[in-house]
Amino acid sequence: MNFNPKNKSSNIVLLIASFVIVSLILWNTNSFFKKFKEEERLKMEIWATAQSEFQQSSEDADLGNLHLKVFQNNTSTPMILVNKDGSTKTNNMDSEKELDSLDVANLIKRYSQVNVPISIDQQGEHLATLYYGNSEVLNKLKFYPIALLLIIFLFGTVIFFFFKTSKASEQNKLWAGMAKETAHQIGTPLSSLLGWNELLKAENINPEVTKEIEKDIDRLQTITERFSKIGSLPKLDAHDIVKETKEAYDYLKLRSSKLINFSFDSQVEHMPVLLNHALYHWTIENLVKNGIDAMKGKGDIAIEILPNGKNVCIQVSDTGHGISKSDFHAIFNPGFTSKKRGWGLGLSLVKRIIEEYHDGKIKVLSSSKEGTVMQISLRIYAS
């Protein structure tokens, strides 16, 4: 989250501007709807007047033709004319079936609620009552604001996800650049350490000392290789998943507290999988270290390899405090961490390594107060 006050103010201004624009659109649409409804009312009053004049002067041929044109031009507004003798006449009805008296009564009731009926009078005498509904155009216009708001919402959603994706892409590039720069920076002192170690060997220093230095140098080279591969597609080769997992396991076992009980079990002796050696070892180390942190340095860590059809599953379990079910997916998001210290990048990198680079899957298989089981699924390589 960006806490920059300037950006926060800009967001508030943008939100207010959006609200004002939407309000103006709704107000304008409502005004247009009312005006259109008033014009339709005026049209119906003209029709009613023409009907009244026509009934009184039907013998005048020219006047009758004028009225006839008024009647013929009104083809969109549904109406029911109830004469003083109770007879009814319907016009502009979309229904294909013939309307019975009950249908007409229901329509009259509905039209009365939509529009005020027009009384047709002539010289103080009541001739008929006109009931009318909204035209098809007016009915469709009622849904225009909803459609407009939906379009605005969809447009805003597209823009939101576009900027969110762009921001995530920029962050990924930044992390990748930082990782590569870190690998580059480590490379210079690492080369010097190699040289100094060779000088120590020439000075007849205790071989055990130089041997341990070499191990640390190898470790630094491994770390450098890992960081250099972030942000670029690594090369995958066929490796034995059992052997690779056991190597990462043994390395961590030798360098972990004696209060941690390690166990390793595999239901297969050999299983070829396309892997990147450095990144896969990094994944196992991250999962094991997370388990150790969850147990606060004391408990059981178990690694088990199980065949599962065309896939092989690597399960890493611990006896830590567990993970809330609501956080099963969130723990893989960058920045998510339950530790007081930490960047929350370990599991997000693990997810990227497994799912993006190795086309596999990683998930929290189960978790409770007794511990957590993380599972990696990788496709078996068929040569």
Rank of each mutant, 00 (worst) to 15 (best):
Glu214Asp: 11
Lys215Ala: 12
Asp216Gln: 12
Asp216Phe: 10
Asp216Cys: 12
Asp216Ile: 13
Ile217His: 01
Asp218Ser: 15
Leu220Met: 11
Gln221Lys: 13
Gln221Val: 14
Thr222Ser: 15
Ile223Asp: 10
Thr224Leu: 14
Thr224Trp: 08
Thr224Asp: 15
Glu225Arg: 05
Glu225Asp: 13
Glu225Ser: 13
Glu225Asn: 09
Glu225Leu: 14
Arg226Cys: 13
Phe227Ala: 03
Phe227Thr: 01
Phe227Ser: 04
Ser228Glu: 14
Ser228Gln: 13
Ile230Arg: 07
Gly231Cys: 01
Leu233His: 12
Leu233Glu: 14
Leu233Gly: 13
Pro234Cys: 03
Lys235Ala: 14
Ala238Trp: 02
His239Met: 09
Asp240His: 08
Val242Phe: 04
Val242Ala: 07
Val242Pro: 04
Lys243Ser: 15
Lys243Tyr: 10
Glu244Val: 12
Glu244Gln: 10
Lys246Arg: 09
Lys246Asp: 09
Glu247Gly: 06
Ala248Ile: 05
Tyr249Leu: 04
Tyr249Glu: 09
Tyr249Pro: 01
Leu252Cys: 06
Lys253Asp: 07
Lys253Trp: 04
Lys253Leu: 07
Leu254Trp: 11
Ser256Thr: 05
Ser256Pro: 12
Ser257Pro: 03
Ser257Met: 08
Leu259Tyr: 12
Leu259Val: 07
Leu259Ser: 13
Phe262Asp: 02
Phe262Thr: 00
Phe262Met: 01
Ser263Asp: 09
Ser263Thr: 11
Phe264Ala: 05
Phe264Glu: 07
Phe264Asp: 06
Phe264Trp: 06
Asp265Ile: 15
Ser266Pro: 01
Ser266His: 07
Val268Asp: 08
Val268Pro: 07
Val268Tyr: 03
Glu269Ile: 12
His270Phe: 15
Met271Ala: 14
Met271Gly: 07
Val273Cys: 06
Leu274Ile: 11
Leu274Gly: 06
Leu274Gln: 10
Leu274Thr: 08
Leu274His: 08
Leu275Thr: 06
Asn276Lys: 04
Asn276Ile: 00
Asn276Phe: 02
Asn276Pro: 11
His277Tyr: 15
His277Ala: 10
His277Leu: 14
Tyr280Arg: 00
Tyr280Ala: 03
His281Phe: 08
His281Ala: 12
His281Leu: 11
Ile284Lys: 00
Ile284His: 00
Glu285Gln: 08
Leu287Trp: 03
Leu287His: 02
Val288Gln: 04
Val288Tyr: 00
Lys289Pro: 12
Asn290Gly: 02
Asn290Glu: 04
Gly291Pro: 07
Ile292Lys: 00
Ile292Phe: 03
Asp293Arg: 12
Asp293His: 10
Ala294Val: 00
Ala294Thr: 04
Ala294Asp: 09
Ala294Trp: 00
Ala294Gly: 07
Ala294Gln: 05
Met295Trp: 05
Met295Tyr: 05
Gly297His: 05
Gly297Arg: 01
Lys298Phe: 11
Lys298Ala: 01
Gly299Thr: 02
Asp300Gly: 05
Asp300Lys: 06
Ile301Trp: 01
Ile301Phe: 02
Ile301Ser: 05
Ala302His: 07
Ala302Asn: 15
Ala302Val: 10
Ile303Gln: 01
Ile303Ser: 04
Ile303Asp: 05
Glu304Ser: 15
Glu304Pro: 13
Ile305Gln: 06
Leu306Asp: 12
Leu306Ile: 14
Leu306Gly: 11
Pro307Ile: 06
Pro307Ala: 14
Pro307Trp: 02
Pro307Tyr: 04
Asn308Trp: 00
Asn308Met: 07
Asn308Ala: 15
